[in-house]
Design a protein around this nucleic acid. Structure first.
Lengths: 153, 153
DNA sequence: CCTGCATTATTCATATATGAATAAAATAAT
DNA sequence: ATTATTTTATTCATATATGAATAATGCAGG
């Protein structure tokens, strides 16, 4: 997604709310990526590894694209990079010779665990900072923005 | 920024809060870009145009990079595309022959106005949906996340 | 069995982002 | 004044994202 959203000198409180929300999200994403970079991972790489580890079987690239809600060509490239890193290998599907599956390697598995630890640490810190926050109020704000709630799988 | 953030099957409320916040921000950005696309603009293109119109003078590419908080090479490319669209032109600075300035064209000015109208419309709709929302509570959530408040200029 | 349609992944073109290396020009230091 | 440093933009390599076009395979209907 694009980083650049200018503040169009708006006056309304709700406009500032939107800018603040987007800004906060970018800041969180930045820290999340920062945490993963300790283990030489990026957000997309970790996401793909995590899906593969969770699935506990080689996933077809189409499946992976669906899981990560992005287009297939994106996954082709991501798996190229993961393969170059030695974290996954492409395997053929003998039942359907069109499908290519991504299988996580031993190193990939270890790397996913290491990444998850960093994410855990990051979330722990966030959790501590947020103890006692009014989550109900936050949910109300999100629902006002008409963004689907719980859109994450 | 990267779109892919997997939900690591976390249980804590605060983790879900973070995922929801990031998800909400992406959704807002998506709609913002959608609004701009009506006028053939993208977020970054509109942001650059807006800065140039606000400044009311040709800006050096370095200045523009600072304003949009991104690296210079990014602006080089963005101005390439804006120039290809006929929305800005590069001008030389006779005082300092290193600096290249981006000057918004007549078409660029009109396009910025058209884009701003779409953004306005988008924000209006959002504002209506948010009438009566507890902004105080929202600010408290953001401060818990230890994200700088009002970080937008 | 072929033929046409659907599905799979890849390639290509493009947009956005970063950062390192480079080139050109201005400025500071000796 | 010449040298060294800083500042400017660009180029290059890379990562991430999209979508259109392509190629290979599978499948359904005749």
């Amino acid at each position: 997604m694009n980083k650049i959203i200018p503040n169009i000198g708006s006056e309304r409180e709700t406009d500032r709310l939107m800018f603040s929300l987007v800004h906060a999200a970018h800041e969180l994403e930045r820290r999340y990526e920062e945490a993963l970079s300790i283990e030489g991972l990026t957000g997309p790489k970790f996401a793909a590894l995590s899906k593969l580890v969770q699935a506990d079987r080689p996933l077809g690239l189409g499946e992976l694209a669906d899981e990560l809600t992005c287009v297939r060509s994106n996954i082709t490239q991501l798996v190229d990079r993961l393969e170059a890193d030695g974290l996954v290998v492409r395997t053929v599907d003998h039942a359907d010779r069109r499908t290519v599956r991504a299988a996580v390697t031993e190193i990939g598995m270890q790397r996913q665990i290491a990444g998850a630890k960093q994410v855990e640490k990051f979330l722990d810190a966030l959790s501590k900072a947020c103890s006692g926050v009014d989550l109900e109020a936050f949910e109300r704000v999100l629902s006002c923005l008409q963004v689907e709630k719980g859109g994450y799988r």
